[in-house]
Write a protein that binds this DNA or RNA. Structure first.
Lengths: 117, 117
DNA sequence: ACTCGGAATGGCGGAAACGTCAAGTTATCC
DNA sequence: GGATAACTTGACGTTTCCGCCATTCCGAGT
């Protein structure tokens, strides 16, 4: 079952990101300014990082906190691709967001049809 | 002194994002599933949110945790809710992208006006 | 003046994460 | 077998955040 419990996603992402960079727990800990045992507790135990430790880990690993938290699937801040649109998107209410989603979906669909003319 | 202490950035971003959406503390609290007093403590007091509450706030406000934490300057809506929109966006031509940008900008503007009534 | 909604603030007990340390794995070397 | 490195796990006392509740403050409207 590939179902990763919400709280477990963090553990996996943390460990994966660390290994991807060829760091052991002690090295990551040093970079993040916290004890090695804490890193282990995060990766293996039930502990969840505090506000500050989450930031420290993300910075040490050069990933977004959203990625570590499982709120985003890409480790990098891909936000800058469509700057203004993204900025505006964040101000929308949920209803407006649906509107925008439908609108863009329509455009994409049209585009597909046009291309096959 | 406009020096925003690292820990204070969160307070400001939280409050700004909330107001931008025309929510009061109780409404945001309800959306995030926590007591209204907690939101006030986050915005005004010395309290910092836990792992779970940070996620809840970001989701309720549709912003990245990186933005709330001051690790990113664009509030880019969470990939979770804009997933489809994001996928469709990548299929757009440049003209259509401009259309979409304008459309979303309009929605955001309307919303902003409404919020400042 | 008074009310009322929104917000700030502080105290409380409980829960959770903190750093630290010690004692275990487990695997890989010589 | 012994040694070492990487990691896990549990315990401890401490710190911090939790939710809850009550109080206070402020501004806007009647």
């Amino acid at each position: 079952m590939p179902e990763a419990q919400a709280t477990d996603i963090f553990k996996e992402r943390l460990k994966d990101a660390r290994k991807l960079r060829g760091l052991n727990q002690a090295e990551l800990a040093a970079k993040a300014g916290l004890p090695a045992a804490s890193v282990s507790h995060f990766e293996s135990g039930p502990r969840k990082p505090s506000f500050d430790n989450l930031k420290a880990l993300a910075s040490a690993l050069n990933v977004t906190t959203d990625y570590l938290l499982g709120r985003s699937d890409t480790p990098e801040a891909s936000a800058e691709t469509v700057g203004r649109l993204h900025r505006d998107l964040s101000k929308l209410t949920e209803e407006d967001l649906k509107l925008a989603t439908d609108f863009v979906g329509l455009l994409a669909k049209q585009r597909g049809a046009k291309a096959s003319e």
